[in-house]
């Protein structure tokens, strides 16, 4: 499966190299590049915009802290997403807020969209998120990485430290459950 993750790892490695060379702006570029996918991943797993904002902020600080430990044989975004997923899981464990649903995510729709499209996009987003929050955390994570972050099986396996077969099986079960939930919700 071809990856649709934004950019290439070569670009990321170049930014990291610049940052290691003392260019703080390179790290700023990394944050700008990945803030949206990291925030979206956190939101889909946590279901709350405030929590997702906090986690996204923490993720980039963790990256900053641990950058010296990053092994460049792995793709940077896999390492970044892994930190994001782990932080989200830790947050859920600490707060036990897995069942909370935040419907105040209406700024998701593009600004250019007309009111009708904006309303429809919000309704769909809320409906899908409500169904996602009924899945268990592992199912929600694989759905998020596959459908909202466009990760391939191998990338998901790398991020979650699982083998591809497990990823496929987990994704299939998650899809089956989510499909049933969305059918009931609709």
């Amino acid at each position: 499966m071809a990856s649709n993750v934004i950019g290439t790892d070569e670009q990321d490695q170049a930014l990291l190299s610049r940052y290691r060379g003392g260019d703080v702006g390179a790290f700023s570029s990394i944050v700008l590049k990945y803030q949206k996918p990291v925030y979206n991943a956190a939101f889909r797993v946590l279901g709350n915009v405030d929590d997702a904002t906090d986690i996204a902020q923490i993720v980039f600080l963790r990256v900053f802290e641990r950058l010296e430990n990053y092994d460049s044989q792995y793709r940077f975004f896999s390492w970044l997403y892994r930190i994001a997923i782990n932080e989200a899981i830790d947050f859920l464990r600490r707060t036990s807020r897995e069942d909370e649903l935040d419907e105040d995510n209406d700024y998701a729709a593009p600004e250019a969209a007309n009111p009708e499209h904006r309303y429809a996009a919000k309704e769909l987003s809320v409906c899908v998120q409500a169904a996602l929050m009924k899945l268990n955390t592992n199912e929600r994570i694989v759905i998020t990485l596959r459908h909202f972050n466009d990760c391939s099986y191998s990338e998901i396996a790398e991020i979650l430290a699982l083998d591809e077969k497990t990823v496929k099986s987990r994704l299939f079960e998650a899809r089956r459950r989510l499909g049933g939930l969305l059918k009931n919700l609709s």
Partner: peptide, 20 residues
């Protein structure tokens, strides 16, 4: 098809500034 139709959220405007 349904999941493909869900638009992604925009990152909070102050996130980048807060991190930096």
């Amino acid at each position: 098809a349904t999941l493909a139709g869900v638009s992604s959220l925009a990152a909070p405007p102050a996130l980048h500034a807060a991190v930096m």
